[in-house]
Amino acid sequence: MPFLLAAALCSVLVSVLLKLARRLEVDVGQAIAWNYVVAAAASMLVFAPAPSALHAATAAWPALVGLGLLLPTIFLALAGSVRHAGIVRSDVAQRLSLLISLLAAFVLFGEPLSAAKGWGMAAGLAALTGLMWRPSKGAISGGAAGWIYPLLVFLGFGVIDVLFKRVASAGVPLGAALLAMFVLALLVSLVLQGWRLARGTARLGARSLAAGLLLGLLNFGNILCYLRAHQALPGRPALVFSGMSLGVVALGALAGMVVFRERLSRINLAGLALAVLAIVLLARG
């Protein structure tokens, strides 16, 4: 359980850092690029992957390239979601992206659909509707961005999970897969930031570098602690998943409403409750 708590805490702290980025005058794009420098270096130090593992797994490269493209762009979408919709909705949208990976499991991987999973998916869709509901006079402004960004987070993280399953099914060792993903994501981030620098729309800054180093440590810490939790509880994957998801939703709600004074409507709160129910049903199914 300590590993699960640490993983959930790291995940929520990523959202908190993204929420504070504008206030601290941090360039999110630059911070995301530096984040992948740290994550790639940490992968090499902790896992020490063998390069030969990637040479042998040619079938995994399309999924790895897809992950390299999606990881930095979905990070930007998460930053936009936290800014426009708040931490609570963003974290829940990220956790409910499991619905997409489950749908892929039924359609692409032949997993049977149980009653609990069916009800869980229905509750999850209802939760998304409630969480993205925007009252005409809400406390959280943002217009269309207030629901577009959480929707992008939901779709993006769902596709990322499916691609990760493709990599895992190809037999690539986790350390080698993580290193390849982080390096590819870094290259994409460098291209994006180089384009911004060439256009004069961004300037290198020490604050963005510091934020990126912290972001990379939190991002890698989230992954590492989550993996350690699975190793500590090898026969209870449902407990690991539900504990992680519920922990992120609970800590994210606490941080959003207490630290940042995010206010949710009754429909939003009902969506939050449905999200917890959906996670429990999907874990038990």
Rank of each mutant, 00 (worst) to 15 (best):
M181N: 08
G247R: 00
I100C: 00
S114T: 15
L128N: 08
L213M: 13
L274F: 13
I223H: 03
M1K: 09
A180C: 08
V159S: 02
W119G: 15
G29K: 08
A273E: 05
L78W: 10
G80W: 07
S15H: 13
L152A: 09
W34G: 08
A93D: 00
A50D: 15
P62Q: 08
V248K: 07
S208Q: 02
M121H: 04
G205K: 00
R207Y: 01
L152T: 00
H230G: 14
V65F: 11
G221E: 02
H84C: 13
L264K: 09
G138K: 11
A127I: 07
A278L: 12
R83Q: 14
A8Q: 05
A168D: 15
Q231N: 12
H55Q: 14
F109A: 14
G243L: 12
E111F: 06
S97N: 00
M132A: 12
Q193F: 15
W195R: 15
L125S: 08
L213A: 09
A139C: 11
G175R: 05
S15L: 12
T58N: 12
A6G: 03
Y226V: 10
S81M: 03
I279P: 12
G124L: 07
V258W: 15
C225H: 09
L155H: 06
I32D: 02
G143V: 10
R83L: 10
W119K: 06
L13K: 03
L155T: 10
L197H: 11
P2Y: 11
G142W: 00
G86S: 04
G130Y: 04
A238H: 13
G146Y: 08
G156K: 02
S90F: 07
L186C: 06
L108C: 06
L214P: 06
L209R: 02
V167D: 03
